[in-house]
Design a protein around this nucleic acid. Structure first.
Lengths: 155, 155
DNA sequence: GATGAAACCGTTGACGC
DNA sequence: GCGTCAACGGTTTCATC
């Protein structure tokens, strides 16, 4: 994996903040020509450094007033059991994020819900109905202080 | 907050998957005209339903091989102490996400690190050097099974 | 292999319906 | 509300170094 050039770093930093940043602005801020900026972005996409561009929707505006952090412990940590749970979490739209982790719990999930009743019906489907889920601990997210997917980029 | 129209829902679903989706494609998939799609997107932006468009960079490709989930417990939960920690977490580029939560811990952090040494120097700065941090528990993320910010959208 | 010019295509905003 | 069109920005191609 080759090191990231200072120019590419600056381009990515700007795009992480705003994917619709004008090429002209990026060119001005990096001292490159518009054509060069455009070519670098194309290469960054092709090389897999840029995973994609995504529109982020406000959960609140879409009716999802609540966010939860759920730590899930499985009964048996066999590979097929882990994969089964992984697949289920991945397929559930209200599970925004799912991490397979070390420690007491096996999975950490960030879950969106319209309200408490909505969350409870999700826990039924995802946890209570699954005989392989030993226990789960729910934390209510009071403040999504910082939410993003941006990666630190420095020259 | 008015309910989301079926057409807007479909537009947002497509943009959540790919912010650079062609208006023509969106128009075809929704049965709307290109002009209408464009107008709706502009309104969705203005109304705050769309928070923004963001380029997502591969953490691995940028040299961040490790992800951690850190649960942080504070010594005193006074509002100014909470805010101080919130601000520190927010300002730290390697803290990708920070949630203020109920339960045993006060904060849950998703942290990126180049390697173990990098993570340790971060814990020093963020936790050991902060007298208000009572304890923190680290989980290594073995698999980022599902990572995204997309919101469930159904008609 | 990188650059700039130019043609092409998609997006945006203004106008009229 | 809707489509049309002209201007603008982004993308691709090509000639050049």
């Amino acid at each position: 994996m080759s090191e990231l050039s200072p120019a590419d770093t600056r381009i990515l930093r700007l795009l992480q903040e705003n994917a619709r940043e004008r090429l002209e602005t990026i060119a001005a801020e990096t001292g490159l020509s518009v054509a060069t900026v455009q070519r670098r972005i194309r290469n960054l996409r092709a090389d897999g450094l840029i995973l994609g561009d995504f529109t982020v929707v406000s959960p609140e505006a879409a009716g999802y007033a609540m966010t939860f952090l759920v730590m899930v412990e499985l009964e048996r940590e066999r590979l097929d059991q882990l994969d089964a749970f992984r697949r289920k979490a991945r397929a559930e739209p209200q599970v925004q994020q799912c991490y397979y982790i070390t420690g007491e719990a096996d999975f950490a999930l960030i879950v969106l819900a319209r309200d408490m009743a909505d969350f409870e019906s999700l826990t039924q489907r995802l946890f209570f109905d699954d005989t392989n889920v030993k226990r789960f601990r729910t934390s209510v997210v009071m403040d999504r202080t910082k939410v993003g997917l941006s990666v630190p980029l420095s020259e």
